[in-house]
């Protein structure tokens, strides 16, 4: 885990990280190695199994090699919040997580870590979600996020309500962060997708709830945006989210969204879910703050139906 290394680089990391985020670190690959016109802003894939959806989706987005370079340390952040099995769709599909880990390792990643600061007991969640097993079988490392000791204080100078947070050291020390939310309904935030999924990399979520939840969700994205967002919409928890009560709450959509912009991911996911992006407060706020773009009509979208 090399906590010491983190601590050493932390001072510099916090400083540069905060600024890089605003300079659009997430998009750095766009400008560089791939010619602008060839790469879509958003890839939407449907009618397939999670693995096939991802294979086609990442290919359309320029391949995993665009995001993961040889020897890099990758963190994959699925939603593993709840102690429920995959068919309840409260957690990211383990088959998708497995596939992403495999792609990262094929692209030459040195290490691929997977973790979440879960809501239910983390061991239960890791096991019941099937994600722990999937990650291990794929050759990744599953890391805990349940202890405050793993979280380091960061400043959010561009946050409006949220000015600081304690972020998991794995994210702070990662070369590449891949955000893999599951699309689901959510009581307080209406919808849980890519931006909401980042609540699982901080320690104190109660603070967000007590302090204007949508604004805090948007504020946190000003720190560091994930390099890639893969929205799992294979099974969609259409109501009673984020935990769900039974499989009756789930609709099978067999879809997936891939994009470097997490606001775009959330906007497109909202459409898939059946709500207008503007009705989800944090999407509207994040767009207004310039974190990312929700205006799908002005973006290059690659639609793939398998």
């Amino acid at each position: 885990m090399q906590r010491r290394t983190f601590l050493k680089t932390l001072g510099a990391g916090v400083w540069t990280g905060a600024h890089l985020a605003l300079l659009g670190r997430g998009q750095r690959a766009d400008a560089g190695e791939v010619t602008a016109g060839a790469v879509p802003d958003l890839v939407a894939v449907k009618n397939g199994e999670p693995e096939a959806l991802f294979d086609r989706g990442i290919e359309a987005l320029g391949g995993m090699g665009r995001f993961v370079k040889k020897g890099q340390r990758v963190v994959v952040k699925p939603n593993i919040g709840w102690n429920v099995p995959p068919e309840r769709a409260a957690n990211t599909n383990p088959r998708l997580v497995r596939r992403i880990v495999e792609h990262c390792l094929q692209a030459g990643a040195r290490e691929v870590y997977v973790f979440d600061h879960t809501c239910d007991d983390w061991r239960d969640c890791y096991r019941t979600s099937g994600i722990e097993q999937a990650v291990k079988e794929a050759g990744g490392k599953i890391a805990p996020g349940n202890s405050e000791g793993y979280f380091q204080q960061i400043a959010l100078p561009h946050g409006q309500r949220l000015r600081a947070a304690k972020e998991h050291e794995l994210i702070l020390g990662a070369d590449v962060v891949i955000n893999v939310p599951v699309l689901k309904s959510h009581g307080g935030a209406k919808l849980s997708v890519a931006m909401k999924n980042l609540m699982g990399v901080v320690w104190d979520r109660g603070e967000w709830h007590a302090n204007d939840l949508p604004q805090c969700i948007a504020d946190f994205t000003t720190y560091r945006k994930p390099d890639l967002n893969v929205v799992d919409a294979y099974n969609v928890l259409q109501r009673h989210g984020p935990r769900g009560v039974s499989e009756n709450d789930v609709v099978r959509q067999r879809s997936q969204l891939l994009t470097t912009d997490l606001v775009t991911a959330d906007a497109a996911a909202a459409k898939l879910f059946g709500v207008e992006p503007d009705t989800v407060d944090y999407i509207r706020i994040a767009h207004a703050m310039g974190v990312g773009r929700k205006d799908l009509e002005n973006l290059v979208i690659r639609r793939i139906v398998l």
Binding site: C119, H186, G187, G188, A189, R205, G206, H209, A210, N211, D212, L213, P214, Q215, H240, P242, R243, V245, D281
Partner: peptide, 24 residues
């Protein structure tokens, strides 16, 4: 309730409720 006192969304209770006895 924060929704009442601070007039901001929350819903943490609804989020965790396993039966949706608590809902918004």
């Amino acid at each position: 309730c924060i929704v009442y006192t601070d007039h901001t969304p929350c819903g943490a209770c609804d989020e965790y409720c396993p039966t949706k006895a608590v809902h918004l």
